[in-house]
């Protein structure tokens, strides 16, 4: 299964970035092999508005079945839910540890957005 993770850099050893739409790197990881199979520096982070929904659409297009992140805004959440992507939130620590926790089913699934709109903006 492919999952998307918001990270502070393009590495499994990087930390999970708590922001979704404005994270530093958006990584696609194959949970079978545990390897990064796509993504990289998050180009949506510099969008004036709608970074979250753009990132969400991109995640859906990549065929990811779940998102692992810290906080999700309502707009990104709406798009991810429409795309039937599972949203796992309040994730912290390294990307590697987060993937392991996901594999063990230990991550919390969001039932609604966790932050108000525009939270990641400067």
């Amino acid at each position: 299964m492919k999952v998307a993770i918001s990270a502070s850099a393009d590495s499994l050893d990087a930390n999970v970035d708590p922001r979704f739409g404005r994270c530093a790197s958006l990584l696609i990881v194959d949970t079978e092999t545990g390897e990064i199979v796509g993504g990289g520096r998050n180009a949506f982070a510099s969008e004036g508005g709608g970074a979250g929904t753009q990132a969400a659409q991109w995640v859906i297009e990549q065929g990811a079945e779940a998102v692992l992140t810290g906080n999700l805004g309502p707009n990104a959440f709406q798009v991810l839910r429409a795309g039937k992507v599972r949203c796992l939130i309040s994730v912290s620590g390294s990307v590697r540890d987060a993937l392991a926790a996901f594999g063990r089913g230990e991550l919390r699934e969001a039932s609604s957005n966790t932050v108000p709109p525009h939270s990641g903006m400067g």
Partner: peptide, 12 residues
């Protein structure tokens, strides 16, 4: 302004 997202069968 990224106000619209279109997914297969869905317009948001």
């Amino acid at each position: 302004y990224n106000a619209i997202v279109v997914l297969p069968g869905q317009w948001l």
